[in-house]
Design a protein around this nucleic acid. Structure first.
Lengths: 256, 256
DNA sequence: TCTTTTTCTTGACCTCGATCAAACAAAACC
DNA sequence: GGTTTTGTTTGATCGAGGTCAAGAAAAAGA
């Protein structure tokens, strides 16, 4: 193994590990199904792309696997290449707030403190690209485009967080769920997937903890949207959107 | 006037302007009372510091002045040098969510889309350093430390946003207000100010819109914390913290 | 296949915080 | 000073969403 791939040496044993598929970092990302405007290594100039790729480490995780916990030493930055992940914070009594759901191309583990500010857990079978901070840091300094990419990713997350603060602080249960479905649909199209049906890899309980509601209210609100004819629910992990304009209207309190 | 100071040419007329104090950018920031670890130009190497300073533009704004509105073309990045600012998002029916209160050293206007994602409004007499995106962008590419600084600022905001999502989604009114006061106190100490009394430059209505509550609930909760002996309220814009450990405990639901 | 377990839905009731309303306090203006 | 305006507090009532409880429907084992 070439020295530049020797990132296993700098690995933080606190991070839990999944299985490692055989990969050849100097070739293009073979297991990576990402082709987005803004992920960590997309659209970098060719030699810088190769350079960044050589830093990475790929892992696959089973469903419901904890990748890292809030407070763990933040030794890596992750890019999700397939599957989906939830990020959450806990209160001491067990109350939970999910601060984000992630899909392929999304990056997580960004921090400038010592520890991760949230726990990251897979929703289903997922694979990640992992970049050790220790080797990524000097590379960021010498590859301005990479540093800019990191900034863009952080800002994108920040704007998403601000949007969710509006949901949590000022929207009704129905508006929150409509906003959530509309947002999932929009993000699916950004990944080149159809707008409908929307895949819901997370449980009702996860949706509740994301929207600041209880599972009962989430369930009742799904039923209500169904009765309004805005959605159909073929199975519990898919939602058909029958009327996206109306859904968006409902998400902003436009219609009662 | 030297060409490098000619940033007025690139000014976006949509941004509302305050009065411009006479200043000499090649000298050190004279009106800038910031001395923090992480503001936009603090702790840069001397010549880079001078270079970044030469890009800036200083403005003073009166209280309750709208610096920019959500959706305005994002032509500048701002650093608050004195006073305080609120950032908020609106729903079409007027419901408002304040996504952040800013104090000296804080940066706002970070985005990578065309428009600002929130409205920025002063709470009291405030002054800002303003950097035009157009001239800051190439500088960021050639000054890696500046780009890193921007990233750090975005990440700091992101972590603050995640924390507030936990408040909004999962905390009671009392826990939110206690968290808010504890957070203001901590940030004051980070700026080298005493922990108590905490200054509240914002109205009760602003606090309500920040915490996802109504003014009545905010007022009642203040009264309740007062009765518990945790705080004293000499006047409506100051809170004395009598028992910070208990306040923190209350903020996490530790005591009932 | 038939349990057993888990997740989701629905109903009945309750509570925290919202709404409505009035009194009070503090500025701002004359 | 007094009057108006605006912001804050307090009280009375209401309702959206939470809690508790019981079914229904998947999912996981056996």
């Amino acid at each position: 193994m070439n020295a530049s791939f020797d990132v296993r040496e700098s690995r933080d044993p606190a991070d839990t590990e999944g299985s490692r598929p055989s990969d050849h970092p100097t070739q293009l990302c073979r297991i990576c199904d990402i082709n987005r405007e803004t992920s960590i290594c997309s659209r970098l100039p060719k030699d810088e792309f190769t350079r960044v790729l050589s830093l990475r480490d790929q892992f696959q995780f089973p469903p419901l696997h904890t990748i890292f916990r809030e407070g763990d030493r933040a030794a890596h930055i992750y890019a999700l290449t397939s599957g989906s992940v939830k990020l959450y914070k806990l209160l001491s009594d067990g109350r939970r707030q999910i601060v984000g759901f992630l899909f392929p191309g999304d990056v997580f583990g960004l921090t400038n403190l010592g520890g991760y500010p949230y726990t990251a857990e897979t929703l289903n079978q997922s694979s990640t690209c992992r970049f050790p901070q220790k080797v990524l840091d000097p590379t960021r300094e010498s590859v301005p485009m990479l540093e800019r990419r990191m900034f863009d990713l952080a800002v994108r997350e920040l704007m998403r967080a601000h949007e969710q603060m509006l949901w949590l602080g000022r929207k009704t249960a129905q508006e929150r769920l409509a906003s959530f479905l509309a947002s999932l649909a929009r993000r699916a199209t950004e990944r080149g997937q159809p707008e409908s049906p929307v895949a819901l890899p997370m449980s009702r309980s996860d949706i509740a903890d994301f929207l600041g509601l209880t599972i009962e209210t989430v369930s009742r609100t799904f039923t209500h949207l169904k009765k309004l004819g805005v959605i159909m629910i073929p199975d519990n992990s898919h939602v058909m959107l029958n009327n996206v304009p109306l859904l968006i209207k409902l998400s902003e309190g436009g219609a009662e």
